[in-house]
Write a protein that binds this DNA or RNA. Structure first.
Lengths: 129, 129
DNA sequence: TGAACTTGTAAATACTTTGTAAAAAGGGGC
DNA sequence: GCCCCTTTTTACAAAGTATTTACAAGTTCA
């Protein structure tokens, strides 16, 4: 069974932390009070990551959700887009977008490591093993 | 489907003691409020040990569960990985990861009572060959 | 049509992870 | 203490993966 589908648990409420705010209904992103100008793919990628904040998302899942690519496709497109995103995220880039070597990427909310106090309980199956 | 399932007695609730916290669904480890950056093998190894905190786990069991090695394989890989883990655990290393000479390793929660720390070793059946 | 922007790819570079070898240190029986 | 076996430590090499840069093709829009 291909467990790479993103479930319908996708966060649609606005995201907001100390530096980054994201409104999914208006497709607007704000970084430190500045409007962030993203291309479509950049937005889609960031949105998917942010909507699954704290979760590791495998490359194949990202390529599937954002690009519609199947698992057989070998490409560096994702990496390049992550880079473009990180560039626009400025100094917070590496704090926000974490590389999970050999697996994929993960968005971490700013000052995230408090995972035992947040009560955001999500079904751990969204991305399968 | 992932075939290398570990026994179903494995702890999935987060682990947490005075210094170390571990969330197995997010694959996140925190040591004294700092996020601990682990490689895959390091994480797998630590997770297995922590999920069996207090139990002696024989080398062969670790090599089998984390590496998929059979009993015939002779290697020092495990030792080296334990060392890398200990390094990242800093000053708590020896408190947390105990060497059971001639048998294997054991993870001990911080300030765990050591009443039964003897060298008479009876490996739990869970890891029997 | 032309300018500005978006996107995917190629290729070079940089970096990470991992296992092994080998020397040093430690344990335990006698 | 001595010997043998186990563990620790260091260093290194191979393989794999990610990052970065540059470019060319494709879009959009006036």
């Amino acid at each position: 069974m291909a467990m790479l589908q993103v479930g319908n648990d996708r966060q649609v409420m606005p995201y907001c932390d100390e530096h980054l705010a994201m409104d999914f209904t208006q497709q607007a992103v704000i970084l430190d009070s500045e409007r962030m100008i993203l291309t479509r793919k950049e937005y889609d990628l960031l949105a998917l990551l942010v909507q699954h904040a704290g979760e590791i998302i495998p490359r194949e899942a990202l390529l599937m959700q954002v690009w519609g690519y199947g698992v057989e496709i070998r490409t560096r497109t994702l990496d390049v887009h992550v880079r473009r995103l990180r560039k626009k995220l400025g100094g917070y880039a590496d704090q926000y977008i974490e590389t999970i070597f050999g697996i994929g990427y993960r968005f971490q909310p700013f000052h995230a490591p408090r995972f035992f106090q947040t009560h955001v309980v999500k079904p751990a199956m969204a991305f399968g093993a």
